[in-house]
Write a protein that binds this DNA or RNA. Sequence first.
DNA 1: CCGCTTCTATGAGAAATCTCATATTCAGTT
DNA 2: AACTGAATATGAGATTTCTCATAGAAGCGG
Lengths: 223, 223
Amino acid sequence: MHRIDDVNVLAECLSSSDFELNFSFPAARYARLFHAHAGDFILREGEEPAYLYYLHTGRVKLYLTLSNGKVSLIDFFEAPCFLGEMELIGVQRESRAIQALGDCRCLALPVRECRELLLHDALFLRKLCVYLGTKNNRNVASLSQNQAFPLANRLAAFLLFASPDGHYRERHTHAAEYLGVSYRHLLHTLSDFSRKGYIVKETRGYRLANRAALEEKARGIES
Amino acid sequence: MHRIDDVNVLAECLSSSDFELNFSFPAARYARLFHAHAGDFILREGEEPAYLYYLHTGRVKLYLTLSNGKVSLIDFFEAPCFLGEMELIGVQRESRAIQALGDCRCLALPVRECRELLLHDALFLRKLCVYLGTKNNRNVASLSQNQAFPLANRLAAFLLFASPDGHYRERHTHAAEYLGVSYRHLLHTLSDFSRKGYIVKETRGYRLANRAALEEKARGIES
DNA sequence: CCGCTTCTATGAGAAATCTCATATTCAGTT
DNA sequence: AACTGAATATGAGATTTCTCATAGAAGCGG
């Protein structure tokens, strides 16, 4: 990830986002702009971030490495959202990494300069509470779903979620991590879906061939 | 759960807790006191709470009922903590219930009167952010652990966690919910631990007989 | 004391999921 | 063009976990 010092690009980003609406102090005055390429790390494991980031464009994934050695993909985040907010409020112990999935633009407030301002800004804190609460809800939902439903149901929901145009193109490796199952088992279930005609393999990915059946499978998950 | 109108008891509760330190306005003026017996519901599923609760004494469990019909135990909370804060900030969609595990005392602020005060109080909001962030961390940790380790490891950790005096006395039904496995499988694994001599069955519960072995099993989980 | 519900307990068999081994393809590198 | 590391695939067998069936024990209101 590298910093972009072009003042015009920064101004453009600021004006094309809700960034400033999150603060009751003139945050724009402190803002920097960063650009991350696909695969770049925005937060590295065990590193104290120097900025509070606001993802302006792009998509990232958050994961942590267990003592197991296994890497567990925790969640996807899409712009707009905060990154590094847990560290700001000082509740971060685990070593987490945030990695860009595609090109990302991040507005950033330097913690050193803004920490006190942020921690006394009721508007920002309220926005942050909502954001944290929403994240919490999602986590709780997936926590209980993972335990309550076998992969077939969760995969059906994921296929529908991740295929806006009816074409599924996620990496199997990513999907397996996200769904919390082994790569092997994901492939099993995909080929099972193929056999049943729910999906059809294409040159690159799958086409959702029987949306109704997938929705039926996914039912009971949406809560 | 019923309200306690004794002003002296209320005053006593206020003075014996950090309650007032969470707010920069005179919250004590608005505070009520409630008492819940074991099994009482503090929040019912699908009900909009009229109060922001601060658990003064006691222990509660939070769970939600899936469309599945299955009930999923999400978490335990111990005093002191907030309850109903998700609803206050307006990010609550799922139907959750909070049930007292033993006798509980709750300080409570009426949402109708305090909502605006609370949502503009930077001190309270900051405390709430920390609280939500901590909750989030716990959820993420258990989310990834559940996926990464079989029950034997998690159970070992749970036994050590839930047996301060070396005697385990949790309800199997509760434990099974909490660990996210079937009752049957929990019993399997317990009897396996028995056979291996890790634990010894007593009149009521189990005694941890081989703490070292349990710690070995639990290792790799503590992150 | 009776009937009801919940918890505890155990067995048998099935389903879900994992590990390991092995190939192939593909993109990037040298 | 050869090499390498990741992603894709597929098979076989083991492990984990679940469902169902059954039964006794404990607690509780009538």
